[in-house]
Amino acid sequence: MSLSTNPAAISPPPVVANGDALPVSGVRERILDAAYDLFSRRGVRDVGVNELISRSGVAKASFYRHFASKDQLVLAFLERRDQQWTVDQIVSEARRRGETPEERLLSIFDVFADWFARDDFEACSFVNILLEMGPGHPLGQASIDYLAKIRGHVEQLAEEAGLRDPENFSRSWHILMKGSIVSAAEGDRAAAGRAREMAGWLIAQYRG
């Protein structure tokens, strides 16, 4: 059989990770899965590249083939966190639970209440990394940008509810969101309910 007709000869070899063969497309996801768990619970500086490589079970060369630096991996983690946490868990679930725009806004804190009650509650990675790295660091700035996206979702809900000055409303609302997360991290698992009550007052102030 000629080389051109031998599939084994023309197919790229699988990537071997600590003795396990992985398709190339799976290596990046394996690294990112490990990073998601570590970064969301421990932040950035406490997690080293060697631990990421060990946890993901890939070779060092494979790691750097997909992520030239740890910072690049953190940026990929933040992108995934935005999709899985902000969009899929918070915004989508709040929209599902509320029948009206105002109810959807308030449902954000109902979702938070469930989140705060979990044994694996890990607080907000965007706030954690911003405070850890500072606003002048590229990772801190990226966290600021993702926090702004959260306000954008709130602003859209405020517009749908017909509230006046949706931008300023979203900033005040976001303070309640972030404050409740910090309070929950301190141990106040009823923080979401307290924030929800204040959120109702805020909506009343901004009704058209």
Results as ranks from 00 to 15, higher is better:
residue 131 L to E: 14
residue 115 W to P: 00
residue 79 E to R: 11
residue 90 I to A: 09
residue 120 D to N: 11
residue 129 I to D: 03
residue 78 L to M: 14
residue 118 R to T: 08
residue 131 L to A: 06
residue 97 R to A: 06
residue 109 F to N: 07
residue 100 T to W: 13
residue 87 V to I: 15
residue 83 Q to G: 07
residue 106 L to K: 06
residue 106 L to I: 04
residue 110 D to T: 06
residue 127 V to R: 00
residue 98 G to E: 00
residue 91 V to C: 05
residue 135 P to T: 02
residue 123 A to F: 13
residue 116 F to R: 03
residue 108 I to S: 02
residue 110 D to E: 13
residue 87 V to H: 14
residue 129 I to N: 06
residue 125 S to P: 02
residue 101 P to G: 04
residue 97 R to E: 03
residue 93 E to C: 09
residue 131 L to T: 09
residue 102 E to K: 14
residue 81 R to K: 10
residue 113 A to Y: 04
residue 133 M to F: 02
residue 133 M to I: 05
residue 132 E to V: 01
residue 112 F to Y: 10
residue 132 E to L: 01
residue 78 L to V: 02
residue 129 I to G: 08
residue 116 F to D: 02
residue 80 R to V: 05
residue 78 L to R: 00
residue 135 P to E: 06
residue 100 T to P: 06
residue 123 A to G: 07
residue 105 L to V: 00
residue 126 F to H: 09
residue 78 L to S: 01
residue 112 F to H: 14
residue 114 D to E: 15
residue 115 W to N: 06
residue 99 E to I: 05
residue 127 V to L: 12
residue 132 E to N: 11
residue 91 V to N: 15
residue 85 W to Q: 15
residue 78 L to N: 00
residue 126 F to P: 01
residue 113 A to C: 03
residue 126 F to K: 06
residue 96 R to Q: 13
residue 126 F to C: 12
residue 79 E to I: 03
residue 129 I to T: 11
residue 116 F to C: 07
residue 105 L to F: 07
residue 83 Q to A: 13
residue 130 L to S: 03
residue 94 A to T: 03
residue 128 N to D: 14
residue 132 E to S: 04
residue 110 D to W: 04
residue 133 M to W: 00
residue 87 V to W: 13
residue 132 E to W: 00
residue 85 W to G: 08
residue 105 L to A: 01
residue 134 G to F: 01
residue 105 L to Q: 10
residue 117 A to H: 02
residue 128 N to C: 08
residue 96 R to M: 06
residue 105 L to G: 10
residue 90 I to K: 12
residue 80 R to K: 15
residue 135 P to V: 03
residue 102 E to V: 14
residue 127 V to Y: 00
residue 101 P to Q: 05
residue 100 T to C: 08
residue 108 I to C: 00
residue 97 R to M: 15
residue 111 V to R: 05
residue 121 F to H: 14
residue 126 F to S: 11
residue 120 D to F: 09
residue 115 W to Y: 08
residue 134 G to P: 06
residue 104 R to G: 04
residue 118 R to L: 13
residue 100 T to D: 05
residue 87 V to E: 11
residue 130 L to W: 10
residue 119 D to K: 08
residue 118 R to P: 07
residue 88 D to T: 12
residue 114 D to R: 11
residue 98 G to L: 00
residue 122 E to Y: 08
residue 111 V to S: 03
residue 125 S to C: 04
residue 125 S to D: 08
residue 123 A to P: 04
residue 80 R to S: 05
residue 79 E to A: 14
residue 117 A to P: 04
residue 135 P to N: 00
residue 89 Q to C: 04
residue 95 R to L: 02
residue 131 L to C: 12
residue 90 I to S: 02
residue 123 A to C: 09
residue 129 I to V: 15
residue 90 I to T: 08
residue 85 W to D: 13
residue 118 R to I: 06
